[in-house]
Amino acid sequence: MTEIYTATLDRIVDGQTAVLLLEEDGETVDQLNVDVARLPSESQHEGAVLEIVVEASELCEAEYLPEVTQSRKETAQGRLDRLSKRLSGQD
């Protein structure tokens, strides 16, 4: 069965294995470990968001989504900024 997921590169282990968190409807539903060299070169960093095609638990295709990656990075930074302001305001 062929499935399409949005995936976030969670981490790279030993410089070779990419740990992808697979998402459906905004929720993490599974994890897939792949050789980092199978991913597009521009997506070989933590936090990269990709659209992937998986068949029989194997990565078939991967497309980097730079706009989604940047948007998520900005959202996360905004949360951190708000949290740090809240904490610093409680002196």
Rank of each mutant, 00 (worst) to 15 (best):
M1E: 10
T2E: 12
T2F: 08
E3N: 15
E3T: 07
Y5G: 06
Y5C: 06
T6M: 13
A7R: 09
T8Q: 05
L9P: 02
L9S: 01
L9C: 02
L9G: 05
D10C: 01
D10K: 04
R11N: 05
R11Q: 13
R11D: 12
I12Y: 11
V13S: 08
G15K: 03
T17V: 15
V19S: 01
L20C: 09
L21M: 05
L21G: 03
L21Q: 04
L21H: 10
L21V: 08
L22H: 06
E23R: 12
E23K: 06
G26K: 01
E27M: 13
E27G: 01
E27F: 12
V29R: 11
V29F: 06
D30A: 14
N33S: 13
N33E: 13
V34P: 11
V34E: 01
D35K: 09
D35T: 11
V36P: 11
A37L: 03
L39G: 06
P40W: 03
P40C: 12
P40L: 02
E42N: 05
E42L: 07
E42A: 15
S43F: 10
Q44N: 10
Q44L: 09
H45L: 04
H45Y: 05
E46P: 01
G47Q: 00
G47V: 05
G47M: 03
G47K: 01
A48Y: 04
A48T: 12
V49A: 11
V49N: 09
V49I: 14
L50N: 13
I52C: 09
V54C: 11
S57P: 01
E58S: 14
E61D: 15
A62V: 12
E63R: 14
E63T: 15
E63V: 14
Y64N: 08
Y64F: 15
Y64I: 02
P66H: 03
P66K: 02
E67C: 01
E67M: 08
V68S: 10
V68I: 12
V68E: 15
Q70H: 02
Q70P: 00
S71V: 03
S71R: 14
K73Q: 11
E74A: 01
E74Q: 06
A76V: 02
Q77F: 02
Q77D: 09
Q77A: 08
G78P: 01
R79Y: 10
L80V: 11
L80T: 08
L83A: 07
L83M: 09
L83Q: 03
S84V: 14
K85P: 00
K85L: 03
R86F: 04
R86N: 07
L87A: 13
S88F: 09
S88N: 14
S88D: 15
G89D: 11
D91F: 11
